[in-house]
Amino acid sequence: MIEVKDIIKSYDGLRVLDEASLTINDGEFLSIVGPSGAGKTTLLQIIGSLETPDSGKVIYDGTDIVKMKEAQLAAFRNRNMGFVFQFHQLLPEFSMAENVAMPAMIGGMGRKEAMERAAELLDGLGLGGRLTHRPNQLSGGERQRAAVARALINDPKVILADEPSGSLDSHNREELYRLFFDLRSTTGKTFIIVTHDESLACNSDRVIHMADGRIIDDIHSI
């Protein structure tokens, strides 16, 4: 369980999160929606420990990660969180398999084992024939599936995604959503996704609506 309590965050005197609080249950598929500038991405980054709040708590299974020192937090993030970004963030100089394996190697796994694990994940996502391809040799949908494999490589408890379909066409967007829901069903992982896409949000377990740095609505699917 993740508990977000009274998060405040400001940049250059502008408050972008104003006492945001929510609880996210294990295995939940949660979408965060709202207009641009509502604070969605900042909230996601704080939940994912990529940003530090000015005040408040982010508690994973009883542990407040805000209080962790950077090295401890980096190790916690590597073990427990997987990230999928809008523009995939694959490193162009590495093959797809190397990109996917990298978080595992950073976490201490040997290269051989990490590459085998990456190949297994990519094969399961229909990319077994693309292991040695560089990102610029892949389609947009293939790059984003590779980003999903990278997020899964350390078997994290939580997948966090920021507008993951924003750069995809309608076909690849639907494929990505199907993949997310299939993964949630088969792995039981928690998904927290910032999105403008109502078709994704309406199929989520819960939808958090934000405006002006506040959570203004919390809707559970029936």
Results as ranks from 00 to 15, higher is better:
Ile7Lys: 08
Asp12Tyr: 13
Arg15Ile: 13
Val16Tyr: 08
Asp18Cys: 10
Ser21Gln: 12
Asp26Pro: 05
Leu30Tyr: 01
Ser31Phe: 02
Ile32Pro: 01
Ile32Met: 08
Ile32Thr: 06
Val33Ala: 03
Gly34Asn: 05
Pro35Asp: 12
Ser36Phe: 11
Gly39Thr: 09
Gln45Cys: 10
Gln45Lys: 14
Gly48Ile: 01
Pro53Tyr: 07
Gly56Glu: 01
Lys57Ile: 00
Val58Met: 02
Gly62Phe: 00
Thr63Gln: 10
Gln72Gly: 14
Ala74Met: 10
Ala75Asp: 15
Phe76Gly: 08
Asn80Ser: 09
Gly82Phe: 01
Phe83Val: 04
Phe85Met: 10
Phe85Thr: 05
Phe87Arg: 08
Phe94Glu: 01
Phe94Arg: 11
Ser95Val: 08
Glu98Thr: 09
Glu98His: 10
Asn99Val: 03
Met102Glu: 12
Ala104Glu: 04
Ile106Pro: 02
Ile106Ser: 05
Arg111Lys: 15
Arg111Cys: 11
Lys112Gln: 15
Met115Leu: 15
Met115Phe: 00
Arg117Gln: 12
Ala119Leu: 04
Glu120Val: 07
Leu121Ser: 06
Gly128Trp: 10
Arg130Ala: 12
Leu131Ile: 06
Arg134Ala: 10
Arg134Ile: 07
Ser139Val: 10
Glu142Asp: 07
Arg143Asp: 03
Gln144Ile: 04
Arg145Tyr: 12
Val148Met: 11
Val148Ala: 06
Leu152Ala: 09
Pro156His: 07
Asp162Phe: 07
Glu163Lys: 12
Ser167Phe: 02
Ser167Cys: 01
Leu176Asn: 06
Leu176Ile: 14
Leu176Tyr: 02
Phe180Trp: 11
Asp182Ala: 06
Leu183Lys: 05
Thr186Phe: 03
Thr187Ala: 07
Lys189Val: 01
Thr190Trp: 00
His196Ala: 09
Leu200Thr: 05
Arg206Tyr: 03
Arg206Cys: 04
Ile208Lys: 09
His209Asp: 14
Met210Lys: 08
Met210Leu: 07
Asp217Trp: 00
Asp218Ala: 04
Ile219Asp: 11
Ser221Tyr: 06
